Amino acid sequence: MNTAKILVTGLPRTGTTSVCIAALHLGVKTAHTAYTREALGQAQLLADTPVFCDYKNLVSLYPSSKLLHLSRPFELWLPSIKRLMTAMQNNLLSQRGGFNDTIKRCYLSVFPEFDKHFDSDNFWFDCYQRHQQQVYQFAQQHQLPLLDVTIDQADIGSQLAAYIGNGKAGTVAVPHVNIGGKVTAWKWISHPLKVESTRAGKADKDTLLYSEPFANT
């Protein structure tokens, strides 16, 4: 089990897939979404679901973790998250089937009752700001390393290489993927350091995956 984790706390549509691809090229075992204990244990860098919701619990389980926060200008993030949530809405809200328990819990925790406030830009702004502030406060409170970057900044490749590159100097290319409404780039990535999110397509039960020793801190 890898106990020193890099937890990507950026919300969906902030560049999590791009960072995960860069991490693979830096020699880092990476999971973009993790729905089993094996995936959580094997990966050094974890992003997207459940990390953006459960980073506090993951730090409790892996206290040597450091945080990598992805920001994005709100005016660019807003139409992107709305497209994603439009596509996901039926499966998120389904009482029978739809997404696995972890996906539903994470999205509905960070975007509570989003279907009732979908057309309110203020709702999405509040969700974005609240999440960012909570990450900052948690890192400060627990004295955790925190790197905050945007996917478009000029020096992101060198910053990522220094922060997650396992001692590698220099820079790494950070591809721009999942542009527009596309969200499946990670699915088509083939790399020996890629950690599968599920076990033969199956996720652990959420009640098992997130019971103790995950702590609500």
Rank of each mutant, 00 (worst) to 15 (best):
F123P: 05
I164V: 10
N91E: 09
N90P: 00
D115Q: 15
T49F: 03
G170A: 10
F111Y: 15
Q129S: 11
H69P: 11
G180A: 13
R105C: 08
N166Q: 08
A31D: 06
Y136G: 00
T150W: 01
L24A: 11
H176L: 12
Y55D: 04
F123C: 05
P63H: 07
T150H: 01
D54N: 11
G41V: 02
K168V: 03
T150D: 03
R72H: 04
G157K: 04
H117M: 01
T86E: 14
Q44H: 13
L70F: 04
F114V: 01
L26E: 06
L61W: 14
E113P: 03
V28Q: 07
S64W: 10
G180Y: 03
T150Q: 08
W124K: 06
G165K: 03
D204T: 08
D126F: 01
I81G: 10
F52P: 02
V174G: 00
D155I: 02
P175L: 00
T36N: 01
G181F: 05
H32S: 07
I21E: 12
N57F: 06
T184R: 15
V8K: 06
T184W: 06
A23T: 05
C127G: 01
Y163A: 02
G98N: 13
I103A: 06
I81W: 11
S71I: 08
N100L: 08
P79E: 04
Q140Y: 00
L147N: 07
S120W: 01
R130S: 13
K187Y: 09
R37F: 01
T184E: 15
T33D: 12
Q44E: 15
E75S: 10
I81M: 13
S94D: 13
F138M: 03
V149S: 04
G98I: 11
A31F: 07
L84F: 05
R83C: 09
L67K: 06
R37P: 00
V28G: 10
T184M: 12
Q133R: 13
Y163V: 02
G41A: 04
Q42N: 09
T30V: 10
L84M: 13
G27W: 00
D54Q: 15
S94R: 08
F123T: 04
K116M: 10
Q140I: 00
K168Y: 05
C106A: 01
N90R: 06
N90H: 11
R37Q: 13
S65I: 13
S109W: 06
Q44D: 09
E212W: 01
Q153F: 03
T102H: 05
L7I: 07
D155W: 10
R72W: 06
A31C: 13
G97M: 14
D148H: 11
N216H: 07
L147V: 08
S211A: 15
T49I: 14
Q129K: 05
L26F: 03
G157W: 01
Q95K: 15
T3M: 05
K205R: 14
F125R: 15
L45N: 03
R130E: 09
D155N: 12
M1W: 04
H69R: 12
K194V: 09
S65L: 08
F138E: 04
D148F: 01
V51I: 14
A22T: 12
K29D: 02
T217F: 05
F118Y: 11
I189N: 07
A185P: 10
